[in-house]
Design a protein around this nucleic acid. Structure first.
Lengths: 219, 219
DNA sequence: GCTGCGATAATTTGATCAAATTTCTTGAAC
DNA sequence: GTTCAAGAAATTTGATCAAATTATCGCAGC
């Protein structure tokens, strides 16, 4: 029962939980992240919490404030520009590399993940949308067999995460044409170049959302 | 006043020391990195050592072995390809961005760092060369005011580090034309495009060194 | 406005527990 | 009698926790 929950160490679980909180916009930009706070909230010991915070700080998901405090970074225009450049460089490349390794089974899995994305959008289920969208992208990227570049993409998504909560607030106002359909069509056709282009447009669209929110001072 | 030795926390110092050991090729690829070993070697407590290892693992500088041990990653052809792509994407971009912010004082500092590089090469001082070369590149990159991309570059250099010890063994056999001179000339001329090109060639040259060593089974 | 005091939180240590690896032993088969 | 292998003890190393220490911040008093 709880014997197998013992298999996976506490600091890994704690890391995963804190990471997902950041990744899916549950933590506001600028919010303080304290060790003792997380010890209480997550019910973990001090050492696992420390490690989770350190790891995420190293990944750029959290920001040291100088005076040994840590907080969720605020997005600025400059940061967004850098993240946009990195994402638009790395992720299309990953897509193209993945195209060579896609099997019918994997494409089927990606299709079902995209169905979950659509379903979440129709249901207005924002957390569900974010998780399914993340799963879709990284399921594809991991097929690239390029762990170094996937790590870089993960870091960029973590820097993006806190801003998602404001983008979510725009959901009602802005339509989201689904680039994933183009991507899936390219996968089935075995067309790496088209897949790359579809992913590139998908990313550019997401970045524009955040850029617009930023310009309107919603972040 | 001199209480500043206590100002900077132990885990930061420990992190910096371990990072430099990796960055400058003092640790062999595949070598085991144990907490207790570092506790003895670095004379630090267990918690600071743990944190240093976690941070560096998150940065890709160390590799978990599955059975909760960590080791220095071995470079493979696939890894090298990914690191090469990332470096050749990020670092020329950083150079071009930095070009806009270079002051005469900064160019002077970079010139003196390059002098240290030359001096170390002439003296056959390998550690000195590695440190000065690193300082030159990141002094330039930090002028870009793009901390996100600089972090990515740092991570790539850390993945490169362990391979440097074998590249160093080739020093006697291979000549190293100095691309830094072209870079410095471009800086003085205020030519961002030329600076970008010079740095790109410098990086490509370094990668070719490792590629050649890898092909000959020296790693 | 500056200084010292108290509260809060981070840092660090050392001890203890758990997991994994290595080594040693034992027993059976040839 | 020798060899090999399975299993158990011992050692090494990692994980977690709780207590003691130290730094930082806010606030009162001068």
């Amino acid at each position: 029962m709880d014997g197998d929950s013992r298999k996976i160490p506490t600091h890994e679980v704690t890391y995963a939980r804190l990471r997902d909180m950041i990744l899916f916009g549950h933590l506001a930009p600028g919010a303080a992240v304290t060790i003792q706070g997380l010890v209480v909230d997550l019910g973990a010991g001090m050492t696992p919490v420390r490690e989770a915070i350190r790891r995420l700080t190293a990944e750029g998901a959290l920001e040291p404030q100088g005076n040994r405090r840590v907080s969720v970074p605020r997005m600025s225009a400059g940061m967004l520009e850098q993240v946009a450049f990195a994402r638009l460089t790395i992720e299309p490349k990953l897509s193209e590399m993945a195209a060579k390794n896609l099997t019918p089974e994997l494409i089927g899995l990606l299709q079902s993940l995209d169905n979950q994305v659509d379903q979440a959008i129709r249901a207005g289920d924002v957390p569900g949308y974010l998780e399914a969208n993340h799963a879709f992208h990284f399921c594809l990227y991991e097929a690239s067999a390029a762990p170094v570049l996937v790590d870089m993409a993960r870091s960029m998504w973590l820097r993006f995460g806190p801003s998602l909560r404001v983008v979510c607030a725009r959901f009602g106002r802005v339509s989201l044409p689904d680039r994933h359909l183009e991507a899936l069509a390219a996968m089935r056709a075995g067309d790496g170049t088209a897949l790359r282009a579809a992913i590139e447009r998908d990313i550019a669209q997401g970045i524009e959302q955040v850029q617009a929110a930023l310009a309107q001072g919603e972040i």
